Simulated scan of single mutants.
Amino acid sequence: MRASWRGLREELAGLVLPSGCAGCGLPRVRGELCARCAGALAGAVPHRVRPSPVPYGLPRVYAALPYDGQVRRMLLSHKERGALRLAVPLGELLASVIREVLARTAGERRAGPGVVPARRRRSSGPEPGDGVLTLVPVPSARRAVAVRGHDPVRRIALAAARELREGGLRARVLTVLRQRRTVADQAGLTARERAANLSGALELVPGGARPLAEGRTLLVDDVMTTGASLAEAARAVAERIPRSTAVYAAAVVAFSPRARAHV
């Protein structure tokens, strides 16, 4: 609740008083960020990344930037320190990753099986018959949400969906995943320990399968470390929607430097 009140004060103050950068508090020229923080996000080229080892069931994952430096600071400020205004620039960055996923997918369909298309920076939108694009945030633990006063991944996903809709894409966010058992804190766990900790931990909420059968489903998260959370989320969706296209990819803002780029 403390983070929630801090975020509320920050948003109310921003309505009547000049405010600093949402990332570091320094004076800003335009938008929500100062030149330094904006520069950390500018020029990001979304690309496919893979953790090592790759957990079983992990969909293709695309990310914008490594999880270090100013990007790491901004994500932590948004998640743990109630800097809620950061959801907008982080959501815009996530939207750029999602556009790359759509571009790659569209290119693969046109090229046919076995052909890897050249990278395209933007997608022209869903192809006929694709329907709505559903963004499914990887859920945080209920206790973590209660302590923070907000769900950071959901906030970023909502900002990304707004950005995509402004560009003409039919995008929505559905929080249809939930934890069905308590999991341990992931900090300090190895890749194998994280996978064991999360195995069978997620499930679809009652009635959550039906809307996911329409169009395409894309998992979203703020950071990928070992890929265990995304693999478990994909398993939980596929458990109720038994088809290979239940989740066709995942998009994250940042990835652990331990993961490697994959073209």
Results as ranks from 00 to 15, higher is better:
72 R>D: 05
236 A>F: 07
180 R>T: 14
249 A>I: 04
49 V>K: 04
18 P>H: 04
158 L>R: 14
235 R>I: 08
103 A>M: 07
196 A>N: 04
161 A>F: 02
78 H>V: 03
257 P>E: 11
101 V>C: 14
217 T>D: 05
130 D>H: 13
217 T>K: 01
158 L>S: 12
70 Q>T: 15
26 L>F: 07
209 A>C: 00
180 R>M: 10
61 V>R: 04
136 V>Q: 05
179 Q>R: 13
83 A>T: 00
5 W>T: 13
118 A>E: 15
222 D>V: 13
48 R>G: 14
241 I>G: 02
214 E>G: 03
186 Q>N: 01
180 R>W: 08
201 A>S: 14
91 G>S: 09
66 P>V: 09
213 A>I: 00
154 R>G: 11
138 V>N: 11
83 A>V: 08
38 A>G: 15
155 R>A: 15
252 V>G: 11
112 G>E: 04
229 S>L: 01
115 V>F: 15
178 R>T: 05
56 Y>T: 13
96 S>H: 13
27 P>E: 11
260 R>K: 14
108 E>M: 15
236 A>Q: 11
189 L>Y: 04
236 A>E: 08
140 S>Y: 07
155 R>F: 01
123 S>E: 10
39 G>M: 11
95 A>G: 12
53 P>G: 05
99 R>N: 12
233 A>F: 07
12 L>N: 01
216 R>P: 00
231 A>R: 04
50 R>T: 12
135 L>T: 05
187 A>M: 00
87 A>C: 09
237 V>A: 02
219 L>F: 07
60 R>N: 00
115 V>D: 08
251 A>E: 01
90 L>S: 09
60 R>H: 00
126 P>E: 14
91 G>P: 08
219 L>K: 02
85 R>L: 08
21 C>Q: 12
7 G>D: 06
164 L>M: 03
142 R>F: 06
241 I>W: 10
3 A>F: 08
103 A>E: 00
87 A>N: 00
